[in-house]
Amino acid sequence: MIGLISYLVFFATVASILAIAVLGLNLQWGNTGLFNGGVVAFFGAGAYGTLILGSPALEGQLGGFELAYPLALTGGMVAAALLAWAVGALTLRLRHDYLAIATFGVAVAFESLMRNAEWLAGGAKGIRGFERPLRAALGDGFLYNLAFLGFVLCLLVAVYLFLERLVGSPFGRLLRAIREDEDAARSLGKRPARVRLVAFVTGSAIMGLAGGLYASFYAFVSPQDILPVLTFQIWAMLIVGGAGNNRGAIMGTVLIWGAWTGSGWALSRFAPIEAQLYTGSIQFVMIGAVIVGMLLWRPQGLFPERLVVSQSGRSN
């Protein structure tokens, strides 16, 4: 029983962390129509940034700043935001393909940098030696995990409320206006490229927050945590939940993360031993099929945006 509960706590913690990333993506895609093909780079920047800033000195690596945890977490978000600003400033004035390609490229480059630059972040073996916050007070056991879940949930709610207010604000209406009809927005004296950059950087900082939480939860991050498949998973979560809808995004995260872990467990348990090697391939096909299938048959997601703002207005 305690095993099941502690697993549920674990599951809920990871799902909540991913939900924060999905909310960040929702701001970019759902509200602004920006395709981020490298979610994992911004998630990773937050994760690595947090650990490098918060960890004690490590032999032959950057770090040893031992910043207080909130500062380290904020630093991770800033790292993600800076990365997003650089990519966005270069691409958001150009046709929309460029952002998709450049973000995809940044993820590839980020992973190869982290895999190889041992002086920076330990290379393939990753960063260990991060002091989990408040460990002295809470210990390493169930209590700690429960408290951490509470912390993550608070942040999830905070991000949710922040985004809901943002979307309801004049800025949110401007985002939708630009998504629906860029020329009209421009003719009203708005600067679409700048507004999109703000949305892109904000969304990426939120992904960085998720990455920082993820890394502090495991007190460890390595290139294995920033594989491209994470980008696909986060996208699937968003499309299942319904782009543009923050509550749907959270529901989608729970559904997809449940399906992912559940299918992984089922395959490892019931599939013949020779098929085990292909667990990943089967799961990847499933994630890809969910994305394509949703786009074809239910593009509004399972939990569509209540205030219907269709993207089809941009057709020409």
Binding site: G33, F35, G37, H96, D97, A100, F232, W235, I239, F284, V285, I287, G288, A289, V290, I291, V292, L295, L296, P299, Q311, S312, R314, S315
Partner: peptide
């Protein structure tokens, strides 16, 4: 929906 084409191709690749 032009933008969704990118997204669909992302899924198709996988």
């Amino acid at each position: 929906n032009e933008l969704s084409m990118v997204f669909a191709s992302f899924g198709m690749a996988l």
